[in-house]
Design a protein around this nucleic acid. Structure first.
Lengths: 352, 352
DNA sequence: CTGAAAGCGCTTACAG
DNA sequence: CTGAAAGCGCTTACAG
């Protein structure tokens, strides 16, 4: 009456270890209430069998739903950039909600540091299993990361990185290289005697991202022995009037500017100025696939937009958390997005 | 002793229809052996409840595995292009094999039409639930499509399209627009008095793809009133010697060629020629992220490569079949890939 | 610290 | 044409 061992999965493990499947389950999920001896024996068998859990069965049997929080900037009148990552989040959600995953999106106001801190607090009030976040303020993000680490909640950064914070993953651009690509595109048809203007437009005083982009930008000129002078200005207000005022001044001082590089999505403000002052001979490059920018691509005022697949960032951010929470792959990794070049001719296929 | 109706899913449908869940299952999957009356009643309830099947449970309970066939060119010494779609296929497979999906990859020799037909035959010998295919030969593809339609096997095209064949989906580039983008990049810094050379390098006599690309290429010149002359040559051999011979001749006849556009991944052969003959002042643009091409990007001989996310095409191709076979979303749709611009500066982030 | 039993929401033979 | 029962491979109370 010998039985052949045709079982598999937890049942086979249980049989071999002479325990019940409940105990196997406890070990599988690192739950308490198992003697060290039993735990070891079971773990050995798991290894021996190279056991891979059936996630279908696991998710089906488990009544627990996995909750994910997302913290990103709200869509403002200023820019609809964050629509794209949000779409990516939604797409990921619709793919995995079947598997018991729920997402809650929190928005903060990009021009209001407190709103970021407030939303972080709100997130910790509830009890999420994982968090996807755009780490816009360094200090606040550090606090956030500390709290997550304390509570053992995995978190993923998108859009920009703050290293050394034990994030589970970063999904976004290599900003230095991105600036480097911008410089390449600018200089591709730039006369040697022309100056290049690089512009930061932002209310935030020292956004580390812009520094990295600028460094990459300058590195290209250095690496390629480009002789062009680089003029650089910071503009602290984002409205058209302020930008126009600064630009008027800069162009007055520098008659021979041949190309302009804007380090973020506000390039459309500069485009607007160039168009209004009939300076469309100047090459213009900036960031992000947002409506205003695409309009100026259309009108040949902006030559190129650099983009980092924002939709993908949202999608992959959620999927990464899902993978780690459900499958248990817990690598601390950086996933750099491609540095995409968007023009008047190819933009229509860029976002779906 | 009234029971509250706390059931859901098939059980609730069964309860309301006064049948067993087995019958509900039969209706859900359009199986035979249900009276028309019962079927109607159940379908009504399904609609009323807006019932969404639990795919987890469905896949778990079902012992049937879904088999997908993939037919793509083999990687030749000539090009490793098809590595990328294959990787996409593998990635998709690893994500859904949990859910009972199995893939089998068939390869054919791009330079041998018969091998394509042979592999098609081999695929029909087995009994696959869905097929992903690169439709390289029009007539053979038509036969393939007819057979699929007859057998009710859904099929998806990647890389290039053959319309009017009732394919479930096409995933690949909009070739006309792709040629248009190529022209834009070429002319971006092209002097008006220079000629432009467009080259097809292929053993196949009339590959419809190249026509579309060339049309798009020419359309850009027309739309933008570019005065440049366009010289066009076909090269029927793909080895370096043959290409070099043709190019020598063309450059001899046309002293003022300023830019070259190659309509496929064999651009590296042209790059090799330009480098050997010290003509690297000429702009060169072509297709596809393959090793040889990237080498010439590095060396500044190729200015830009146009790419259509081959990895994504493989991935999405499989996922589309999966979706339609498992979820039952059966839209006949075209999914155009972005037309990506790859340069020396951004290529390192392009494929993972 | 451990196990027997029920259950997740479907699908599958099998019997009638 | 239809249904009762078993089962997919896990997880969850509950009881001890």
């Amino acid at each position: 009456m010998e039985k052949t061992n045709a079982l598999n999965g937890v049942k086979e493990i249980a049989r071999r270890a002479n325990v019940s499947t409940a105990t196997v389950d406890r070990v599988l999920h690192n739950r308490t209430g198992v003697s060290e001896k039993t735990r070891q024996k079971i773990n050995e068998i798991i290894k021996e069998l190279d056991y891979q859990p059936n996630i279908l069965a696991s998710r089906l049997a488990s009544r627990k739903i996995i909750t994910l929080a997302i913290l990103i900037p709200s869509i403002s009148e200023e820019t609809n950039y964050w629509d794209a990552p949000l779409n990516g989040v939604r797409r990921a959600e619709s793919e995995i909600k079947q598997y018991g995953v729920q997402t809650t999106v929190f928005f903060f106001d990009l021009s209001d540091k407190d709103s970021f801190a407030d939303q972080v607090k709100a997130i910790f009030q509830a009890d999420f299993d994982g968090i996807l976040i755009s780490p816009s303020y360094v200090e606040e993000t550090r606090k956030f990361a500390d709290e997550c680490t304390k509570r053992k909640i995995p978190f993923v950064f998108i859009d920009s990185d703050v290293p050394d914070l034990r994030r589970h993953s970063y999904i976004g651009p290599h900003l230095h290289k991105s600036g480097y690509v911008g410089a390449k595109l600018l200089t591709y048809r730039l006369a040697e005697n022309k100056k290049v203007l690089i512009i930061h437009i932002s209310k935030e005083i020292d956004n580390f991202n812009y520094h990295e982009i600028e460094e990459g930008f300058r590195a290209f000129f250095k690496d390629n022995n480009q002789p062009n002078d680089i003029v650089r200005i910071d503009i602290r207000e984002t409205d058209y009037q302020s930008v126009a005022r600064h630009l008027t001044y800069v162009f007055h001082l520098n008659k021979d500017i041949g190309a302009v590089f804007v380090t973020n999505s506000r390039v459309h403000t500069v485009a607007s100025f160039l168009k209004n002052s009939h300076r469309t001979d100047i090459s213009l490059i900036g960031y992000d696939f947002v409506k205003e920018n695409v309009d100026y691509l259309e009108k040949n005022v902006i030559d190129f937009l650099i983009c980092h697949r924002p939709e993908d960032q949202g999608y992959r951010g959620i999927m990464t958390l899902y993978q780690m929470l459900v499958i248990n792959s817990s690598v601390n990794q950086i996933h750099y997005m491609p540095i995409d070049i968007v023009t008047k001719e190819n933009y229509e296929f860029y976002q779906n």
